[in-house]
């Protein structure tokens, strides 16, 4: 199987492209996911991902063909609408944020399923290929899709690099950021928009249900290796990239397996590894620290 993967990677240009784009996607979601995690917005990503489904279906119903850029525009629109509605529900009612997220997530997804089932009825079978958006199917991506996704992911990484310092301050201490003269509102809006875009470009490869995992898991795993945001972002990007590559490769060689779950399971493997081995509050390090302090206590009491 490993042999097959190498062959595919070395000799099939299509595979190379798909792998490259899932790699870039992994980096972008690792980077944006790190900020989202620290901003305590991880699960907003989940809501946005689920909410993207009706957007995709509506765009498809409007234009009548599967044109990725248009579909993604629709997804971005409903994704942003979902974040806005969550905000609105929490500010205008006594419903708390967690319930608001769940509510919006499931209702938008349900609406998406209604539209999707209508589309498949019309198309007679699964010709539309929209069901790939649910669990992700990297192998089904065309060359144009790959260009779109890779371009967007590259752009996101660049913007995150340029705004690193500002976002860091904004997330760590928004009041102080305001006092320092940063346009806090603008930076917030920009961040949420870019987070939505990250989720949206990821759904074709990872799927709407599992996309949130690609935001959360690499970021959390990276936290076990470093205490600096700069490194955290880089490591999260690397873990995301690695998950993207492995998931896409396994999925392309054994057709039929959806890409999303494979990417998520790879990322989860990285998490378990980091959770145990990681030098910053990893399990082994914690046990050793505990051991050392217990020893010290013993010596002192003697």
């Amino acid at each position: 199987m490993i042999q097959d993967m190498w062959n595919a990677l070395l000799h099939q240009p299509n595979t190379q492209w798909v792998v490259l784009s899932t790699m870039l996607l992994g980096i972008a979601s690792g980077v944006l996911g790190s900020f989202a995690l620290l901003k305590k917005q991880s699960l907003i990503g989940d809501a946005v991902a689920h909410a993207a489904l009706p957007g995709i279906c509506i765009s498809y119903l409007l234009i009548g063909e599967k044109q990725l850029l248009v579909l993604l525009l629709g997804a971005t629109a409903t994704g942003l609408l979902a974040t806005y509605l969550i905000q609105l529900i929490t500010t205008t009612t006594r419903i708390k944020k967690d319930a608001a997220i769940c509510l919006i997530l499931s209702v938008f997804f349900g609406t998406g399923i209604v539209l999707l089932s209508r589309i498949t009825q019309q198309a007679g079978g699964n010709k539309s290929g929209l069901d790939h958006f649910i669990f992700g199917q990297a192998a089904a991506m065309t060359r144009d899709d790959v260009y779109t996704m890779a371009g967007a992911a590259g752009g996101l990484i660049l913007i995150a690099f340029l705004l690193f310092k500002e976002w860091k301050l904004l997330i760590f201490d928004p009041d102080f950021a305001k006092n320092s003269g940063l346009p806090v509102g603008l930076l917030e809006t920009l961040f949420s928009t870019l987070l939505v875009i990250t989720v949206v470009i990821g759904i074709q490869a990872v799927g709407v249900i599992l996309m949130a995992a690609l935001l959360i898991i690499p970021a959390i795993s990276a936290r076990y290796w470093t205490d600096r945001l700069g490194w955290m972002v880089i490591i999260a990007g690397a873990i995301g990239a690695c998950s993207g590559i492995v998931g896409a490769l396994i999925s392309t060689i054994s057709t039929g397996l959806a890409t999303g779950p494979l990417i998520v399971v790879t990322a989860a493997g990285c998490f378990i590894f980091s959770f145990i081995i990681g030098p910053k509050r990893g399990l082994i390090q914690k046990l050793m620290a505990h051991h050392v302090s217990a020893e010290r206590l013993k010596e002192e009491s003697l």
Binding site: L38, E166, L169, F172, D175, F176, N179, S180, R228, L229
Partner: peptide, 28 residues
């Protein structure tokens, strides 16, 4: 204008060190 917020207002688990926090004062 300089500002020192209440200590409880930030996330102390944030991946950053002492020097880095002080540098944030220069971001403006």
């Amino acid at each position: 204008v300089g500002y020192v917020p209440q200590r409880g207002s930030v996330d102390w688990d944030f991946p950053t060190n002492a020097l880095d926090v002080i540098l944030m004062g220069r971001y403006g």
